[in-house]
């Protein structure tokens, strides 16, 4: 039975890795959309929706079949949460591309920095979950704070009319993406240590 549960958990791990790499692609595509290069963020997001359902199916089956507990239970619960975070990241990336397509947008200094930090956050979160490395969770908190500051700055720019409202809109999406990356970090801590942070 142990072996069967291991096989199921390995399937979840593979799916989450695939979702992570797709979510990162969609974020990079969203960035390119600011330069007029429109890619397939919508398709990626639809794919992640399907993969998330697959994660839910496997997780449910493992819970029903094996009544897992302790670190097995924490990993399965967290896989469900992380699959949702990754799907949401792809949705926000899709929103950025759609905004760029309809309204048009330029990569301001603020947005440039925001994208760099957000991409770093998502990469860090994916690697942290893959390796169950809780040390990275602290780094994610730090990046999230910096992105929060950038978002607040974009709102202040909006108030003083120093930049276009699109900047604040895009920063808002990046701030949400970073928040999901931070949540993935929190799940790593939960899987490893059983602590909810």
């Amino acid at each position: 039975m142990r072996k069967l549960l291991d096989i199921g958990e390995e399937q979840l791990r593979k799916l989450i890795n695939e979702m992570g790499s797709d979510a990162l692609n969609s974020l990079e595509n969203a960035r390119k959309s600011l330069k007029g290069e429109f890619n397939s963020t919508e398709e990626i997001s639809s794919k992640l929706h399907l993969l998330r359902n697959e994660v839910l199916d496997i997780a449910t089956e493992l819970l029903v079949r094996y009544s897992p507990v302790a670190s097995d239970l924490r990993f399965i619960q967290s896989s469900i949460d992380v699959s949702y975070d990754l799907y949401r990241i792809s949705r926000y990336a899709m929103e950025i591309e759609r905004t760029a397509k309809i309204v048009g947008a330029e990569e301001s200094e603020l947005i440039k920095e925001g994208f760099e930090l957000t991409i770093e956050a998502v990469k860090t979160a994916i690697e942290a979950f893959e390796n169950l490395d809780e040390v990275s969770a602290g780094k994610l908190l730090e990046i999230d704070n910096r992105i929060d500051d950038l978002y607040i700055q974009s709102l202040e720019n909006l108030k003083s009319l120093a930049s276009s409202p699109v900047e604040a809109l895009i920063m808002r999406h990046l701030e949400r993406i970073s928040d999901h990356a931070k949540e993935i970090g929190a799940r790593v801590v939960y899987v490893k240590e059983g602590k909810r942070v």
């Binding site: 039975m1 142990r2 549960l5 507990v69 302790a70 670190s71 097995d72 239970l73 924490r74 059983g194």
Partner: peptide, 17 residues
């Protein structure tokens, strides 16, 4: 104990390892 056992032996026992 079932969500987050303190001891490694407990973890191994409850997870069947």
């Amino acid at each position: 104990v079932f969500e987050n056992p303190e001891h490694e032996l407990t973890e191994k026992y409850v997870t069947g390892a």
